[in-house]
Nucleic acid binder design. Structure first.
Lengths: 338, 338
DNA sequence: TTGAAAGCGCTAACAA
DNA sequence: TTGTTAGCGCTTTCAA
């Protein structure tokens, strides 16, 4: 059998309550008593049972994290941000991969709630009514991380995808481009996929440039799809002179595809990626990319969650983190005033 | 207040025990009774409390995972393997980043044991006596994943790092190289870092090639260090004609550094990486690399852990997974028999 | 096939 | 400052 708080109490000649106080750092204990208890704990090798504590106190100091795929560079970085802050506040995280499958997502939410997590961090694509149904059955706070619901009812941490994509497109237009290829991720995702496409379209519209259907290519965020999408673009009679890809991996594919076709970057083709992952430095020429602060999104999400869990006042329930464009070699240097 | 098993029992007009049986799929329940209970559960929106269950049953269906850094491509892939298999066996994982800091590792093991995990998966660099001390206080199985203890007492899942490095070096020697640069990770890590260096040295020795101190460069597994290490190698009077790097990221750095210096790959320099991550496809020329099946290491580790947790017979406590070299364009094609 | 009841190891009033 | 005690919500004998 394992050592329990009761064994420690007997060994130290005090009550369970006193041991509990010592273990939990309650100041109402005479130093001498505390010492006795500490010694008994050491002698017995006592290790408090967090499950029993959780049952009695109704707090588990554990939060659930539902993530599409931890093996993706993007989400791994985000997860690291979450875990660092969780760790700072003495929480542990139960991490679950959902593969963006709705049934799995719902199932995981239920499982995590059964496990009595103190809060939930959710990353996914769309928030359906089914999601909202489970969410409302939860008695603990839930935060959307790099994910939004269309009505914007739930607390969330994001960047402004529309604006980021808009800005990147504008920066290309300002360089004189009118034929801009757009390599999107799947459009099923209404709030990231769609928003970014809308940002692109808006920038064109603002500049009086017509949207050309063939310039829109749908990828799957993988290298190969960037390669393929670009091959399609290059086949067009009126081929684009610049490409905006919705993540870095596809952008690297775009660069290579261009190079394979004898184009020189950035002179024959300018390319901008998205996410500004480490990958940007690992390609020649290096990749200009929209910085999406993934680690920060995770960290801020977790920080926000701790506030909800502690029932602190939260003034901003929907956090938008800033983005910017990191210039590297796949775009021409900005004109410099002399 | 939340709905408890007692509420369901009353609603269904049965005892708590019967509800428990239904919830746990115990067959000794009359179908009609089961139906009554199921309906009551649905009506009340009952959600079993896993913490209470854990306390009563002494099983949490949760395993602890201690990983150096989830944001590393290598470990993220491994973690995905772990989680997939855990999920398959209905376990959840509590994931913790250790940053390879011993004090943090020890602390995490203790925290996870307090949380009553049913088992532990440990990834780190070296297993010190301090590690072994905590490990022995655990009453649940612990498995080392991509990590080994020098004495080889604990169950573990690995590849043969010595042999992998040996094989890669031999393949270069067989291509006629005698001047082979070796970009290592930090050598503090005795079982991965050192083993691989030894494999390299042994291959040279077997071929009667002398080990040249300057050909050994120490990196930190990041792109920049591959760039820097290679720059050093290229400065040598007798510069290498081939480079073996201990991960893909550094190998890509090596490729770029060579190209920056006007060398053509693979003609002027052959390069082999390690891990065979997706990165290999994302560089021109594509990178030949030693395949270390990271996902599988995670999956097999978790599978092994389930066996221990179920007290099944395990014939092989130390699993060595096969490795191989994936030929791509950074090495010259093998001679083909006509 | 079902129910009664004794814990699991701890926290948190409350009392002293 | 310390102890007593009643749960927390469930599983698991044991008996019926």
């Amino acid at each position: 059998m394992n050592i329990t708080i009761y064994d420690v109490a007997r060994e130290a000649g005090v009550s369970m309550a006193t041991v509990s106080r010592v273990v939990n750092g309650n100041p109402n204990v005479k130093p001498a008593t505390r010492k006795k208890v500490m010694e008994a704990i050491k002698r017995l090798g006592y290790r408090p049972n967090a499950v029993a504590r959780g049952l009695a106190s109704k707090r588990t100091t554990t939060v659930g994290v539902i993530i599409p795929d931890i093996s993706s560079l993007f989400y791994a970085e985000l997860a690291r941000g979450i875990e660092d802050i969780a760790n700072m506040y003495k929480y542990n995280i139960i991490l679950c991969n959902s593969d963006q499958r709705i049934d799995k997502e719902i199932h995981l939410v239920n499982t995590l709630l059964e496990k009595q997590v103190d809060g939930l961090l959710f990353m996914g694509s769309q928030i359906t009514d089914e999601h909202k149904d489970v969410f409302t059955t939860a008695s603990v706070p839930i935060i959307l991380s790099a994910t939004r619901d269309s009505e914007g009812e739930l607390p969330s941490v994001n960047i402004d995808y529309f604006q980021a994509s808009f800005d990147a497109t504008v920066s290309l237009i300002e360089r004189g481009h009118t034929k801009i290829g757009f390599i999107s991720g799947p459009l099923e995702d209404p709030l990231i996929g769609q928003s970014r496409l809308e940002g692109y379209k808006k920038a064109l519209r603002d500049a009086g440039i017509e949207f050309v259907d063939e310039y829109l290519q749908i990828g799957n965020y993988r290298y190969q799809s960037g390669l393929d999408a670009t091959a399609q673009l290059l086949k067009l009679a009126e081929r684009p002179t610049a490409i905006l890809a919705m993540n870095d991996e596809m952008a690297v594919g775009a660069i290579h595809s261009c190079q394979d076709n004898g184009l020189e970057i950035p002179n024959d083709m300018e390319v901008i990626g998205f996410d500004s992952t480490r990958l940007c430095a690992m390609v020649r020429p290096t990749l200009t990319s929209v910085v999406q602060p993934m680690y920060d999104i995770g960290a801020v999400s977790m920080r926000l969650l701790t506030k909800y869990m502690n029932k602190e006042k939260v003034e901003e329930h929907k956090v938008i983190l800033p983005h910017r464009i990191e210039q590297r070699q796949s775009t021409k240097p900005d004109d410099v005033d002399v």
